[in-house]
Nucleic acid binder design. Sequence first.
RNA 1: CGGGAUGUAGCGCAGCCAGGUAGCGCGCUUCGUUCGGGACGAAGAAGCCGGGAGUUCGAAUCUCCCCAUCCCGACCA
Length: 566
Amino acid sequence: MRLSRYIAPTLKEDPSDAVVKSHKLMIRSGLVRKESAGMYIYLPLGLRALRKIMDIVRAEMEAAGALEFLMPELTNAELWKESGRWEAMGPEMMRIADRNGMEYALAPTHEEAFTSAVRSLVASYRDLPVTVYQMNTKFRDEIRPRFGVIRSKEFIMKDAYSFDMDEKGLEASYQTMRAAYRKIFDRCGLETIPVEADSGSMGGSNSEEFMVASEVGEEYLLICDSCGYRANQEKAAYGRVKPHTQEMLPLETADTPSVKTIEQLVEFFGKPSGVFLKSIVYIADGSPVLAIVPGDREINEYKLKNVLGAQSLELADDKTVEEFTGAPVGFAGPVRTGKVRTIYDTSIQNITNGITGANEKDRHFVNVNPGRDFEIKNTEDISSAVEGDACPSCGKPMKVKKGIEVGHIFKLGYKYTKAMNVSVLDESGKPAVPIMGCYGIGVNRTMAAVIEQHCDERGIVWPASIAPFQVHLVSLAKTDEERAKSDSVYDALCSGGIEVLYDDRNASPGFKFADADLIGLPLRITAGKGFFQNGTLEIKVRRTGEMEETEFEDIAVKVRGMLEQL
RNA sequence: CGGGAUGUAGCGCAGCCAGGUAGCGCGCUUCGUUCGGGACGAAGAAGCCGGGAGUUCGAAUCUCCCCAUCCCGACCA
């Protein structure tokens, strides 16, 4: 492709609205342009890279035996009502109606659509197991789109769904997909960390996310270097500290005018935040629940929601808190609460002589002891693990890393097949409900993550497997004769099956080299003075900066050899 | 949804406080000279100053409303 005829608008300056390096580089190197918040135009160069990633995904899906479909983007409301998610999905799902008032969702995901499709396409255990997939746009009304294509309102996802006769089959399908995911990211040149995860609104049990470690990641990962435990903070368990051995002091009441937050309490009592029993009122599926964690811990709403088995979970508003605890916000506590559904974090048992709200305005209890001052049952893991916490499997301290989620695989179980009445005949001719797995890759996000991981101060450094072109040919020709010679190099590479971006523009060498570095194709070939006079071309490897000279003859063969080395 | 910031030429910005009808750098067009690390000169084109309403003889500038974009937070009592 001749750059003189291409649209690859490179920029010298960072765009004002980008803050992360992949976003800046994608704009500056002419891969994408912002259309509006959370929506991006893929320009020819960006689309080529995106397609390369999709080609790899497709190849590995096919190798894993998955079958490619293409589902409608407009999904009928009836489908969502069958699964119960027309309500459950909330405002993140974009809804529209046609002229007859028929309601649709712009698909934010396709569990229902695929479950319905498979329901009508399979009839017998002989048809299973089957894994179906597509690469298609998803629409999500994100609260806050950001970081360029890393979180956008519209993005391409590869989503796959497996259907098996039993859990054993599901395990096999899951492991097949897991292996395929590792290969996909590996081929894209992306280092990923698989972590245990919460399965979120999709439902289901066993779940792993493929994370790319990055400062701009929106997820927190707990990682144990000694035993290899890795989990998303949403899910991460942690070893609990040993009980204190202090003597229990008598329960007292303290006047604490307007002292409400843990921060204020720490200052007021002059004690560390860990002695306070943080007591938070939630509304789970419409009923109030009191959740108690140590003051130095955060309640983990994912864990709490799972423990409660709740569909919805939100903090109670001030009025509800007052009705429920008999005190304004800031003075709730587990002592003398009567019959209130209360969930204690496991580590509450370790608190001796703690402090907590007295369920009375401007009052706290001091020297509160679990078991003595309130009955402690329902202890559950409902607080988030943090840096330094003991690993749940080996007990060594864990580290926290930030990560970008590029893939997510999980065992859905029977959630959709049951809700949507999928049934096939088993070997004995009796109806059976298949079990599902679900597997997603954010294609655009993968591209951004690759750039995040492969760049330097001059620009992108594409892995050869997904570079938009393989070679950046820079011509420094000044005369028609020299231009003709450069053209012959271009022709030789093209006919040798190499993808070439040919800089045949009339610009200065420095300008062209800077553009080549910014765009970051794996190899740069320069046709300069050396070539026009002696026939030697110069090849430079973008990643290493290594340069070598080579003869024009068999240039395509030479280049192919070098690309294979990369 | 709450808080903050910003909207002026394709891009990056100044001008606004102390109102007088818009400027700089990059990019773009033409010509000439240059040409292996973002060349130089000359001449150009390009802006309902985010939108609306108001104040004023006069508004990019002051007031009010709206919209958009970006950042932080989204309830941990």
